[in-house]
């Protein structure tokens, strides 16, 4: 699953070096072509769990029709998907599943966190709910709302397209993903405490404790 591997080195304090290739005419032209193709052919992997999935279905249906963006091929096989749309709340029991699906998707891949619950836990600040899927997988676009209207989701998709169009193949760090350390955190525990002092963050139990 790629999860049990502890992050052997901690990159949090390193200075991020952006690129080894300097942008030139060739890379920018290639960037244009690749980004154009990728942005306009985002096949979604609908990870629909709850209420947001219904609004996601409404987005796919006739009135809003994400087919206009070339997205009507719902890839239920993660191998053929480009963007993971997590629509709905994510309990801890489902956390390894979304992680597995994310790992199964081939690069380049993006993810949209649709709705308050997926983005932050929403009203479900309780024992069973992941407080934001970004503790499990990297997220590109957060769409707020409970659930977001289809227009909101489409705005998120368009933002993602914009983001994709800004990518460059010269950036070799672009798709680098940090692995979760043995503590289950991306940062060392002390650093989490340090960052969240003195009030803790929104869900104050996220402290390493």
């Amino acid at each position: 699953m790629g999860l049990s591997n502890p992050a052997t080195e901690n990159r949090a304090d390193e200075v991020t070096t952006v690129s080894s290739i300097s942008p030139n005419w060739v890379t920018t032209r290639l960037d244009f072509l690749t980004n154009w193709a990728r942005a306009n052919s985002l096949w979604p992997m609908p990870f629909g769990t709850a209420c947001c999935a219904i609004e996601y279905m409404a987005t796919a249906a006739s009135r809003f029709d994400i087919a206009r963006f070339g997205m009507e091929r719902q890839s239920f096989s993660p191998r053929q998907a480009d963007v993971l749309i997590c629509a709905g709340r994510l309990p801890f029991k489902l956390a390894p599943v979304i992680r597995r699906i994310w790992d199964q998707m081939p690069q380049p891949k993006w993810s949209i966190s649709m709705g308050a619950c997926a983005s932050s836990g929403g009203i479900f600040d309780n024992y069973s709910m992941v407080q934001g899927i970004d503790t499990i997988i990297p997220v590109d676009v957060y769409v707020p709302g409970c659930p977001p209207r289809p227009e909101g989701l489409m705005y998120g998709i368009m933002l993602l397209q914009k983001k994709i169009k800004g990518e460059t193949i010269a950036d070799d760090m672009l798709r680098e993903e940090k692995l979760v350390g043995p503590s289950g955190l991306f940062l060392p525990a002390e650093r989490v405490d340090e960052l969240s002092e003195p009030f803790g963050n929104s869900v104050h139990q996220t402290r390493s404790a």
Partner: peptide, 14 residues
């Protein structure tokens, strides 16, 4: 803690 819950949940093999 949330961190421990996340860790345990991810360790639970789907």
């Amino acid at each position: 803690s949330r961190a421990e819950q996340t860790r345990q949940a991810l360790a639970a093999n789907p």
